[in-house]
Design a protein around this nucleic acid. Sequence first.
DNA 1: AAGGTTTGACTTTCTTTGACCTTTAAAAAG
DNA 2: CTTTTTAAAGGTCAAAGAAAGTCAAACCTT
Lengths: 154, 154
Amino acid sequence: MANISDIIEQFILKTLGEDQSVDISRNELASFFSCAPSQINYVLETRFTLDRGFVKESRRGGGGYIKISKINVEDDNYMNNLILESVGDDLSYKRLYQILEKLTYEKIITKREADIICASLNDESLAMPFTVKDSIRARAFKNVLTTLLLYKED
Amino acid sequence: MANISDIIEQFILKTLGEDQSVDISRNELASFFSCAPSQINYVLETRFTLDRGFVKESRRGGGGYIKISKINVEDDNYMNNLILESVGDDLSYKRLYQILEKLTYEKIITKREADIICASLNDESLAMPFTVKDSIRARAFKNVLTTLLLYKED
DNA sequence: AAGGTTTGACTTTCTTTGACCTTTAAAAAG
DNA sequence: CTTTTTAAAGGTCAAAGAAAGTCAAACCTT
């Protein structure tokens, strides 16, 4: 955790807190952390992604800003979207991991459940050629999500 | 004895101590012991294996690290036995299902967790040739069981 | 000779930096 | 009041840097 990106990520998460969104100023943040402004973009691109449940919006020019919003995972749209589109036909382990983090954070699954899914679908478990691996993972994970949806009914 | 690998092993074990995990920096360790960085990998591969109850996780790039976690293998004969013998190198879906029923009945896992494992490792998810399927399932399920051992602490 | 160790060259992944680009609000000019 | 200019944002992309991973050859031990 010695890299700036992680620190900035934590800072933004903390600033967000329980709120649904925050506005940040790219340049201010960058100068606060004494880093290149594009570093902020890097953090946003790698950490505040849709998979992890964030949506961004920004505006340039005077009084510009970047707004980071948490998406509402409550309703089944998020899960349905994951199943139908977001996951797609291929799913890397990394991406799976990020999605699981989000689902855990939103308390849709427990940490233990996330770990179970991870263990069964990581690269070591799925010991097979690259090309097939990601597609098997996608298929299997969609099945898991579908199973979870069944539990949401109650 | 007296070879660097053993010394590094001891050092890591000592650093671990009673803790459940440690973070190490491959390059730092290597330069501390004046050895090639890949020597560290060698030590990890030969000494901190799953069989011996260790799980590893790492990250490259700036601020990279290697995390070594210890799993509690204590006295859990049933799970250990499952991992080492019962499951074996091949595992049919039927057999998996039976084991999951047993684990659920014994309250080692919840029904929901069983369903999740089922969903991710059933024949539909693992869409691949028969010959490979059962061996992938065995491997994956063993990983799941190992992960569950991590939770046996509490 | 066999098996475990050690080393180093090469690869992959992730992060950091900086130069250059685009958009926009506000100010200046007409 | 409209148009033009300017400065203040944010965006993009590629190169450099910082780890860790891999693999095979050389080296020891028994």
